[in-house]
Nucleic acid binder design. Structure first.
Lengths: 249, 249
DNA sequence: CTCTCTTAGTGTAAATAGTACGGCAATAAC
DNA sequence: GTTATTGCCGTACTATTTACACTAAGAGAG
């Protein structure tokens, strides 16, 4: 077998797709590159991994430097290692996504020393990003979409107190599909994972909504009993009809 | 930002969890290490990634060298990068799992030049493997378990013609839960993804079963229409009762 | 104070999907 | 022909999902 030392010619990095939710829209935090390569293009925040640093540690470091936030939801998604993905050498990058509550950090000066900005995910996906960051963003967005169906991670994006409508909008933004209001509420409430705070929204120019909180403790108890959070992909009549057609002929 | 060249002190590898299905049991292909470190222990097949080699290419190469198989199902799962995971240096490894039909390769001499052997996954998980390969195996097994619920990948492990009972045993082995025979058949057949070959099993000492084939073409058509394969995790009465208790109390 | 605007909140019937469960049928071996 | 083994089938019950439309509450304008 080849000696390890023969292969010391590559570098690792992490890239972090930081998602936030604001104004009813799913956002991603991007940085404008100030140096070559890809100077002037928007890129995902990331950095090379230090020699004595674990992968997740590196991802958390990037997040902390940029947002000042610690202990946020972070999940590894995929390693990207196309030979030519970095013009300066072989760099394999490991992509993470994290979910932050935008309201949690009021633009600390340090965090925006580099020009960082929230972008609508949909718009970011349409423009050209640096490196293979379009791939990475797409992959991480898809990972979030899948995750949100099977784990209650959406709450990581909302403030601690939220309304059912906000929650629904969040799911609609992530799943990119409209949901029926009554069915959504019924489903969510039937999981018994929301605490009704007996508080009302304030300062809204219309009927105020009730505020809820995610019941993390209960969720952990449920998990221990093998309970599984599930938001099924629902099939429309149209889809069913077209599937019928394939079966018939 | 740090120069890329400062970081040229690490290596990448891939490790491949190769799953097979035989004798009603899920198997994994392991190699006995002939050299230090971890000499004598069983390990996942893997190798360092060559400087000009993509990640998936490397994973396929390892697979090809070991089994002689090409074009098998391969999926990236997770990158493992604990600082001390390799005693000889910093090596970040990217774990893949692949699904092979054991019947496809009749132990080619070259493939077993290194001592490779199929192990029951359950037993492999109980013994100590080299490096962090227990972690990797567990993670990949869980990934397979999740995957099998939402994509019809199980067929990759079966010969082209199989019986419904074989298919059920496969799912039971992966999900590690017994399934009701009639309900399983009903569910699978209702998906219209199996072609009834009008052929019978031969040489079995009991009533022979019908043979089926997975209808890949139709599945791709369904996919294009947004159809989603789904095998739900079913909750037992017991589980439901315990969840009720949490809600009440 | 009343009218308007906006969003919150609610129920039910029909269809679909999931669950639990027992007995006869076909073959090979003896 | 008897036995052992596995294949194959159907129904009643329950739970979940779907589709769908109106009234309620508050803010703001006049």
């Amino acid at each position: 077998m080849n000696e390890v030392s023969n292969f010391f010619k590559s570098a690792f990095s992490i890239d972090n797709v930081i998602f936030g939710f604001d104004e009813g829209d799913l956002k991603v935090l991007l940085i404008k590159r100030g140096t070559e390569p890809y100077k002037g293009l928007w890129a995902l925040p990331g950095d090379l991994i230090y020699p004595n640093e674990g992968l997740e540690t590196a991802a958390n470091r990037v997040l902390l430097e940029l947002t000042g936030l610690q202990k946020v939801y972070l999940e590894q998604v995929h390693a990207f290692g196309a030979v030519d993905r970095h013009p300066l050498g072989r760099v394999i990058t490991i992509a993470y996504f994290s979910l932050v509550k935008i309201s949690d950090f009021v633009v600390t000066p340090s965090s925006f020393a580099q020009k960082a900005k929230w972008h609508s995910v949909a718009k970011a996906q349409e423009q050209t990003l640096a490196f293979d960051h379009n791939d990475i963003l797409d992959t991480c967005f898809d990972a979030l979409k899948s995750k949100v169906r099977v784990r209650p991670v959406g709450f990581e994006l909302l403030p601690p107190k939220f309304t059912l409508t906000e929650l629904q909008h969040l799911y609609e933004a992530i799943l990119r599909t409209p949901l029926d209001k009554r069915n959504f509420r019924k489903k969510i409430l039937s999981m018994h994972l929301l605490i009704d705070l007996d508080e009302m929204q304030e300062g809204v120019p219309h009927r105020p909504a009730k505020l809820y909180q995610f019941d993390k403790k209960r969720y952990h108890k449920f998990e221990a009993e093998g309970f599984s959070f599930e938001l099924k992909e629902s099939k429309s009549k149209d889809q069913k009809r077209r599937i019928e057609e394939i079966i018939e002929g």
